[in-house]
Nucleic acid binder design. Structure first.
Lengths: 409, 409
DNA sequence: AAGAGTTTATAAAAATATTTAATAATATGT
DNA sequence: ACATATTATTAAATATTTTTATAAACTCTT
């Protein structure tokens, strides 16, 4: 049943009455995907199609077990309309976050419920074939673990770090040693349609999809881990640019320093405002003789990690607080530029460094006020992400679902 | 005839067969607006509607004198299909560019032909009611000059400098002393629906609409006059941001200088990379004793204008060449950031300073290579605008036409 | 220059599909 | 229980699409 309809869906770009029906059903599914539920009357109004016709389509979708009757509404007088919505477990979507030293795999159903999730799977990202096959192995094991027929898993979305062209399925930073698109290789190994995505973009999508956006849906997500990533949502859609490489915010040149960035250039935002910069600043100062609670805890200064600095700051370690403040100010200056350019509705700051909370956000917002035009920044809400970790694989699921269901069209 | 249909158009968001027909006709008009002409078969394919039905709608549009038969195509074997297109003079659109010391008014017809144009109308932009009424007076005179019934002029688009919310019709930099939206005031005075637009955005639209964009239609236009403006096109649509204030590229903070920008802040791109900056740099150096062909020509150094510097550079004046080079390098650094963030298909550099040609563009492109990621900038073509002056009022016309005809939907 | 081969345009009839309008069903409040 | 309000279902009216046929327009070949 299900698979039949989803096979039809790919051929819906044809003429004729049969295909018109399929297109309408697709639109109805997309409506349910965004709006959870709807009555026949609502759908009729939305698509300018008569009630009997909508009724017919919904009935067919019910027969296909993609949609079901969720009972009656409660409010108002008169006969209560039936409300319809997607059948939660009529299909599934898998999302994979490929981290530097771990994997995270999630599976959601049609209603965005997380059906299964496995985080912190030991894994080492290296740019060789074995590392690629390891990912496939974990995904295949994950799938095998569940009693779900493969046809019901409509796709696998894989997040990789670095430059990804999601439209072509090519990866340019990792696993770029085949002639075929990387997505095709995954697909052949897994046996399910596979789509690649940049990790920051997938994570942004999860953040943006939490219902926080209202109006124009122009928003930015800034991922401050070791490096700095930027996910751009414009008019409710992720923005990619010509080749999918948009959002290299970490490497905009705004400082006159002499620090060589990992991209090879000097003066990048990342050299002063990232997790790397935070660690460098703290360790440099310790090496220069500054005192900190960290000096007792770590014999080898090189072993200090981002989380250690943030924890120390929360325990009133002055050196760490100052360092985070410094990062926040520099990052704020960069964000001020983004605000001037994008006039966004919302900016979400995420990533490990965002866990520093007000130690980061106060100097950051202060710098934003200092460096952006007040008439423009007045409209922008800046918040720290309140989401828990390992959201990226969920983002991959969500993005996949919304694409396959044409939610973003 | 015409006016009837355009009245219908605004009510087309209803149900019922009559409205479906109107919506289809609207879509056909929009198709003609973008694709110039089409055959019945093409339209049938495009909209998945049967040939007899398309025929019926096109016939009705011909009756309404909005569409006409443009004869036969030339290629291929078999009977040649008729091609249809818009009737050029079935309706008109007026665009007004409000400059600091002049007005420019253009009028186009449905086929984007410039029907009438009046440039360099003497006018002084001041933030008072008289200055506003002067604009209305000029527009009304412009309209009166033509023998066109007012109903055939479907709208007036007015470009103002500064912050404009085109959705609400409010202006925040000029003529912001009424409670009603400024667009409403214009409308009442002129008697034709009026829409406001930011001048850089309208100009960008004209630049982008010249058929230069192919793929994703993600492009940037940088207007380098005294200040620096940025027009952003994403997926073929102008990008506005939450309140329409996007594109304040001139005021991103990327320098550590002490020059106070006209926005009140320090370190803005505009302080080092704009026309103002160019003039300041040249005059400062002359004041410091540098020699230039300009020193002979101008007794009062304050009288040196942007165009004088560019002309001098083109006559091999070293001081001016060096100054333009400097501006180009700084601007290039700013543009490098835009490339990293947007990964655009195309960047067009326009405005008076762009007339410096290679004196500007070579150091600019050099800086772009220096300061942006090569994997990202590889995809971006940077060109100087080849358009003539006074394009902004045409942009206003175009934007208005395309909006009213739903081209960008 | 006539005719074969193609393709478009138009028309009309037959088959479907959609909308409209009427009716039945369901729910609430008095 | 009945008036009121709204939704669901059905049947009739209308509209659209498809099919079929024919005419028209054009090219190419002989």
């Amino acid at each position: 049943m299900t698979s039949n309809f989803f096979k039809d869906i790919h051929e819906a770009n044809k003429n004729g009455v049969a295909y018109k029906n399929i297109r309408l059903k697709k639109k109805i599914l997309a409506y349910f995907a965004t709006n959870e539920t709807a009555t026949i009357a609502e759908l009729s109004k939305e698509f300018n199609i008569s009630i009997p016709k909508i009724n017919e389509c919904v009935s067919e979708l019910i027969e296909d077990e993609l949609v079901k009757d969720y009972g009656k509404t409660t409010s108002a007088v008169g006969r209560k309309p039936n409300i319809y919505g997607l059948v939660a477990n009529s299909a599934y979507f898998i999302g994979v976050q490929v981290g530097i030293d771990n994997l995270s795999i999630s599976m959601i159903n049609m209603k965005k419920d997380i059906v299964s999730k496995k985080d912190n799977i030991p894994y080492l990202l290296e740019n060789n074939e074995q590392s690629l096959l390891d990912i496939c192995k974990e995904i295949n094991e994950f799938i095998a673990k569940h009693n779900i027929v493969k046809e019901k898993i409509l796709g696998v979305g894989i997040n990789l770090t670095g430059r990804i062209n999601y439209r072509t399925g090519y990866s340019y930073s990792y696993f770029n040693f085949y002639e075929d698109p990387l997505s095709k290789l995954f697909e052949e190994n897994i046996g399910i349609p596979t789509f690649l995505e940049n990790d920051t973009k997938a994570l942004s999508y999860a953040e943006f999809s939490s219902g926080i956006l209202t109006d124009e849906k122009d928003a930015l997500f800034i991922n401050v881990d070791n490096g700095i990533g930027l996910g751009i949502m414009i008019d409710g859609k992720l923005y990619y640019g010509k080749s999918g490489f948009s959002g290299e915010f970490g490497h905009i040149s705004i400082f006159d320093n002499d620090i060589i960035c990992k991209c090879g250039k000097k003066g990048c935002l990342e050299t002063e405002a990232s997790g790397y910069a935070l660690i460098r600043r703290v360790t440099d100062q310790i090496n220069d003789g500054a005192t900190s609670s960290l000096t007792k805890k770590f014999k080898k200064i090189e072993e200090i990690k981002l989380n250690d600095i943030i924890s120390a700051a929360k325990k009133d370690d002055n050196l760490c607080i100052e360092a985070i403040n410094y990062i926040g100010d520099k990052l704020g200056r960069g964000i001020a530029s983004l605000i001037n350019i994008f006039n966004p509705e919302l900016i979400i700051i995420g990533g490990v460094v965002a866990k520093s909370e007000e130690y980061l956000s106060l100097p950051l917002k202060n710098a934003v006020n200092k460096y952006s035009l007040s008439t423009v920044n007045r409209d922008t809400k800046i918040i720290l992400s309140s989401k828990n970790d390992n959201l990226a694989s969920f983002g991959a699921c969500l993005l996949l679902r919304d694409r396959l269901l044409n939610v973003t069209d």
